[in-house]
Write a protein that binds this DNA or RNA. Structure first.
Lengths: 137, 137
DNA sequence: TCATAATATTCAAAAAATCGAATATGTGAA
DNA sequence: TTCACATATTCGATTTTTTGAATATTATGA
């Protein structure tokens, strides 16, 4: 299924993360609640702009706030998500390189597996090496 | 130091993820190498567009390809990153709500901690409740 | 060499994101 | 009330992203 609705929703969530200023805000909130003034002291952005980014984060349901007098104390709605996401993209995985030969062997292996376990799991491989119009090499 | 260079790089990486079509491509590649024709069969997008999105993913160093005859077999450069990121955003965390009272208590607690452990860790909290210009309530 | 299939690139238009400036809203203090 | 501060919203300009159409490129088999 891998719903396209789901992909759209996920893309929107990730888009909320995809801006340096918003990342900084999230990082900051990871340390605890902050009001907008706190953020203005730290971020190289004007008040209006920070407010705009906070609106984006609110729409994505990544942050919410509690009113405290004149201040609005922002906090993370889903701290774990934010923490783990930032951790994940922070550490970088060594990159993999694969040769054509490796891939061919891999595909063959996959094909054999899906052949032996007909219509059981591994649907993602079903279209591979099967429906090739012309040559599949 | 929470470098702003770092934030920019991270934002760019996440931006590569932030499109439904690209998410679908990554999801597909998670199951194994695929050539562009494979993807055309699955995705609701034209060849040129898929190629364009693949270019974005290549620039982000999320995918690379190995030439196999006429075909280009795309694969994930950093499969773990992709897998974990997609898993993470897939499962959704129950959302947290905090009251102003809670936050106030929290801030006070944080302030006390940073006070007792002067200049030891917890730098993220240093600016909180300290440098408020006027009223901090 | 030529034809063809697979894929990439270029270009222009449309849509979306970003930002600063100005202005509005809301809250507590006087 | 009125004022001042904290924050949000609106608007218009600029930049970036996205897309289809057309075209280019490359590898292979004939």
């Amino acid at each position: 299924m891998a719903d396209s609705r789901q992909q759209k929703a996920t893309a929107e969530l990730l888009k909320a993360f995809s801006h340096p200023t918003r990342l900084s805000i999230l990082q900051e909130l990871l340390a605890g609640p902050r009001c907008v003034t706190d953020m203005e002291e730290i971020l190289p952005a004007r008040q209006a702009n920070i407010s705009q980014h906070l609106a984006v984060l609110r729409n994505a349901r990544l942050v919410d706030y509690a009113q405290d007098g004149v201040l609005k104390c922002y906090y993370l709605c889903r701290p774990r998500l934010v923490k783990e996401l930032l951790t994940l993209v922070g550490r970088d995985e060594p990159m993999v390189t694969r040769t054509a030969a490796e891939i061919k062997a891999d595909k063959k292996r996959m094909a054999e597996i899906s052949e032996s376990s007909r219509s059981v799991g591994a649907p993602a491989v079903a279209s591979s090496g099967v429906k090739r119009k012309s040559r599949a090499r």
